[in-house]
Nucleic acid binder design. Structure first.
Length: 107
DNA sequence: GCGCTTATCGCAC
DNA sequence: GTGCGATAAGCGC
């Protein structure tokens, strides 16, 4: 496990329930520009139940992808999980995205 | 306003 | 060493 992945998971674990973050937020918080790399890391997800990869969405508020798929039943399940946390999703996108979006302190 | 292309970085094989 | 990816942002039409 590389330091980046470790940091990514660490930040993800800091995201409180009912909140979501974006790949950009994670990458920016880590000081890297590898937005796509973040997706790779989350997809590898070594601690699935402990790493809320389903709380990570695209910068547009869209779900983005889940379980290595950009669309499919997995995505709908992800949406269901988020909705279960109190997040409203419609048409595959998060409603009040700005309200549920969780950003990390830049220090 | 919508769509497409380019740029970037890390991870896996 | 090379290829791929769950993105983001910018430019063009």
């Amino acid at each position: 496990m590389t330091n980046l992945a470790k940091q990514t998971y660490a930040l993800l674990r800091k995201v409180p329930r009912g909140r979501v973050t974006t790949y950009k937020a994670l990458a920016d918080a880590l000081g890297v520009k590898a937005y796509r790399a973040i997706g790779q890391i989350l997809k590898h997800n070594p601690d699935a139940p402990n790493t809320p990869c389903h709380r990570v969405v695209a910068s547009d508020g869209t779900i983005g992808g889940f379980m290595g798929q950009s669309s499919g039943a997995a995505i709908q399940k992800k949406i269901q999980m988020l909705q279960n946390e109190g997040i409203k999703i419609k048409g595959g996108k998060i409603l009040q995205f700005n309200h549920v979006l969780f950003t990390f302190p830049t220090s």
